[in-house]
Write a protein that binds this DNA or RNA. Structure first.
Length: 569
RNA sequence: UGGGGCGUCGACAAACGGCAAGUCAGGAGAUUUUGGAUCUCCCAUUUGGAGGUUCGAAUCCUCCCGCCCCAGCCA
C-alpha cells in the first residue's frame, strides 16, 4: 500500500489530560525535556481500531513534543504468541502512518536483565520462591473483602531462594512446581500487591529466544522494567491497569533504577454496532460469520483497511474522539463521518448502477451513441472531467422508478420527467412487464434540447438519476457493507446475551451484476470512488481481477430521502 | 463489608471558583445537474442527587446514588 509515508496531521488537535500532563512535566523540567512513549502490543492477535487510538496517542505525543515512540512487543508468554502477529502489527502501525524508526524492541530483549534484577530483589529480601500450587496460591490470596494469608515459603532464606531460582532457570523443575513472587503485603486491599508472581516456569519454545529460557517474567514485572530500560518517560495504558500502578511503582522503587516512568491510564475505545474483543473476533471468524480477520465488517485495522478506510480518516477519528478516563462508547457515525468528509473532497465520482433496470429511449436513433462530459469531482475542479458514452439503451437504478409513487418520491414514474446526470431529460412513457407482472423495462423519450442536463426553456425537474449506457457498460461485483450488529452495544450482556444473536443479516449484500461506466472498468485495485448518489467504494485489492473489479462499499452517502422513508415506516 | 476509578446534551468531549466550547447525531430553512455537498438557524437556565462554603460552584467540602475494573503461574 502506497499510503505508508503520509505524515500524521497534528494541527488543531484538541487537547486532553495526558497532553496536559506531558506539557506540565516539560515545563517543570522533568526528564531533561525528553518525551519517550511506547506502543506495547502483545503479539497474540490482530490490532483493532481500539489499538489505533493508543497508537495515535503514543506516536502523536512523541511527534508533537519532538520525542520518540517505541514499538515494543510484550512477548513474555510464549504459549500464546506468534511471529505471524508481529508482522501484521508492524504492517498495521505503518499503514496508520507511524514509524518507530530504530526503536523496535521486544520484552524478550530484556530477559537477562530481568533475571538479574530478580536476583537483586531476592538478595534484598523482596522476592522469594514459592512452592505452593496454583490453586493454593489462589486460595492464599484471599478475596476482595478478606485479606490473604502468607505463603509458608515466604520466609525462605536468601540463599535458598537464590539456589531455587537458579535451578528454576536451569530447568530442574516441572511447570507449576515453583514461582518467584514479590514479597509485598498479603493484606493489601489491592490484590495486585498480595505477593504477585514475578516468574513462572514455562517449558515452551519462545519465538525469539527459542529454548534458552524455561522461566518467563509476568507482565507486571516485565513491563515496568522494560519501560525503565528503554528510558520511557510516560507509560500510557488503559484503565484496567490503574490498580497495577502501585505495583509498577513498587518494582521500580525497590530496584532503585535511574529511570522511573510515569504510568498514565486512559479509557479504551468502544464503538457502537461492533465488538472489540479478541475472544469475540475469534468467535465471529471461527463460526464463519465473517470471512476472516480482515473481513471489511471487522473493526480490526486489517478489516478497516480492506473496507477502504484511509489511514488519515482513522487518525482524524482518533483525534476527534478525545482521550479521557470515562468509559464510553463512540457512535460509529463519527467514524463514518470522518471517511465521508475526506472522500467528499478527494474521491473521483463515477456512475454505477447497482440493481439495473433497462431503459429504452424510443426516440433516440438506433445504433448511435455519443459522448457526454462529466465532471470528476464537483468539489475539486482540478480533478478534471471525463467522457461518458450515451446511447439508446441504458440502465438506471431499479429503485429510481416507481409505477405508483407516493407523494414524496421525486424520481421517475409514468409520465414524469427527470434528468439523467450530465445527459438529457427523459420522460417515462411506458412500463414493460413480464408474465409475472414484474417490471423488466421502461420506454422513455428524451429531449434532445436538454443535452448536458439543462433545459433551454428553464423548466425544472425534481430528480437527477445516475445511469449507464447498456452497450458500453461493464459488469462488476459490488459488496454493500453495513453494521455487523443490529444493536448499538452488542458487547453488552444485557443488550445482547449472545453476540451471534445480534448479527445484522444484511451486513453484507453482494450484488454481482452491477453495471459500471467504462472509466470504472479500468479501476485499479485499492482505488476509491464515489458512485454518484450511492456512496464511497473501494476496489478490493484481493478479489478484483483484471477488467472485473470488485467494489467494497466503504460507507453510503447520507440519504435524507431514505431516512425520511424509514422514519415514516 | 475491601481496593481502584468514573458520572457535563441522544453520542463523544471542553470548561482547572467568574457566569456551560466544539464535534457527531437529530430538527428547520436556503441552495443545488448527486434527495450528496455547502450555508444558516435550533438542539444542557444547567453539570447523578441532597446539603454546605463563597459575592459567585460543573469546578471546593460533606453525605448519598449509579456505573466500570480487580481474586490468571494472561496481558
Amino acid at each position: 500500500m502506497n499510503e505508508q509515508n503520509e505524515t500524521p496531521p497534528e494541527q488543531g488537535a484538541p487537547s486532553n489530560f495526558i497532553r496536559e500532563i506531558v506539557t506540565a512535566d516539560l515545563a517543570a523540567g522533568k526528564n531533561n525535556g525528553a518525551v519517550v512513549t511506547r506502543f506495547p502490543p502483545e503479539p497474540n492477535g490482530y490490532l483493532h481500531i481500539g489499538h489505533a487510538k493508543s497508537i495515535c496517542l503514543n506516536f502523536g505525543l512523541a511527534a508533537e513534543f519532538k520525542g520518540r515512540c517505541h514499538l515494543r512487543f510484550d512477548d513474555t508468554n510464549p504459549a500464546k504468541e506468534e511471529v505471524e502477529y508481529i508482522d501484521s502489527i508492524k504492517e498495521d502501525v505503518h499503514w496508520l502512518g507511524f514509524d518507530w524508526g530504530e526503536h523496535m524492541y521486544y520484552a524478550s530483549d530484556y530477559f537477562e536483565k530481568l533475571y538479574e534484577y530478580a536476583v537483586a530483589l531476592i538478595k534484598k529480601g523482596k522476592a522469594y520462591v514459592c512452592s505452593l500450587t496454583a490453586a493454593e496460591i489462589r486460595e492464599y490470596r484471599g478475596t476482595l473483602t478478606e485479606p490473604g494469608r502468607e505463603s509458608p515459603y515466604r520466609n525462605r532464606s536468601v540463599e535458598e531462594n537464590l539456589d531455587l531460582f537458579a535451578r528454576m532457570r536451569a530447568g530442574e523443575f516441572e511447570e507449576g512446581k515453583h514461582v518467584l513472587r514479590a514479597k509485598i503485603d498479603m493484606a493489601s486491599g489491592n490484590l495486585n500487591m498480595r505477593d504477585p508472581v514475578m516468574y513462572r516456569i514455562l517449558k515452551a519454545e519462545h519465538h525469539r529466544t527459542g529454548d534458552t529460557w524455561c522461566i518467563y517474567p509476568m507482565y507486571d514485572y516485565a513491563h515496568c522494567v522494560s519501560d525503565s530500560v528503554e528510558g520511557i518517560t510516560h507509560s500510557i495504558c488503559t484503565l484496567e491497569f490503574e490498580d497495577h500502578r502501585p505495583l509498577y511503582d513498587w518494582f521500580l522503587d525497590e530496584l532503585g533504577v535511574a529511570c522511573h516512568p510515569q504510568q498514565i491510564e486512559f479509557a479504551r475505545l468502544n464503538l457502537t454496532h461492533t465488538v472489540m474483543s479478541k475472544r469475540k473476533f475469534l468467535k465471529l471468524v471461527g463460526q464463519g460469520h465473517v470471512s476472516g480477520w480482515d473481513d471489511p465488517r471487522m473493526p480490526t485495522l486489517s478489516g478497516i483497511r480492506r473496507r477502504g478506510y484511509t489511514p488519515s480518516s482513522v487518525r482524524n477519528f482518533c483525534e476527534r474522539i478525545g482521550v479521557a478516563k470515562r468509559n464510553s462508547v463512540v457512535d460509529m457515525a463519527l467514524l463514518e463521518h470522518c471517511i465521508r468528509e475526506e472522500m467528499n473532497k478527494a474521491a473521483p465520482r463515477a456512475m454505477a448502477v447497482l440493481r439495473p433496470l433497462r431503459v429504452v429511449l424510443t426516440n433516440y436513433p438506433e445504433g448511435e451513441s455519443e459522448e457526454l462530459d462529466a465532471v470528476n469531482n464537483p468539489e475539486d475542479p482540478s480533478m478534471g472531467a471525463r467522457k461518458v458514452p450515451f446511447s439508446r439503451e441504458l440502465y438506471i437504478e431499479e429503485e429510481d422508478f416507481m409505477e405508483n409513487p407516493p407523494k414524496q418520491f421525486f424520481r421517475l414514474a409514468p409520465g414524469r420527467e427527470v434528468r439523467l446526470r450530465y445527459a438529457y431529460f427523459i420522460t417515462c412513457v411506458d412500463v414493460v412487464k413480464d408474465g409475472n407482472g414484474r417490471i423488466i423495462e421502461l420506454h422513455c423519450t428524451y429531449d434532445p434540447a436538454t443535452r448536458g442536463g439543462d433545459a433551454p426553456d428553464n423548466r425544472k425537474v425534481k430528480a437527477t438519476l445516475h445511469w449507464v449506457s447498456a452497450q458500453h457498460a461493464s459488469e462488476a461485483e459490488v459488496r454493500l457493507y453495513d453494521h455487523l450488529f443490529t444493536t448499538p452495544n452488542p458487547g453488552d450482556e444485557r443488550e445482547c446475551p449472545e453476540i451471534t444473536g445480534c448479527l445484522n443479516p444484511a451486513s453484507l449484500v453482494t450484488l454481482d451484476s452491477c453495471r459500471i461506466e467504462p472509466s470504472l472498468a479500468r479501476a485499479e485495485r485499492g482505488a476509491r470512488f464515489q458512485f454518484e448518489r450511492q456512496g464511497y467504494f473501494f476496489v478490493d485489492p484481493i478479489d478484483s481481477a483484471e477488467g472485473r473489479p470488485v467494489f467494497n462499499r466503504i460507507v453510503s452517502l447520507k440519504d435524507s430521502y431514505a431516512k425520511a422513508m424509514k422514519a415514516k415506516g
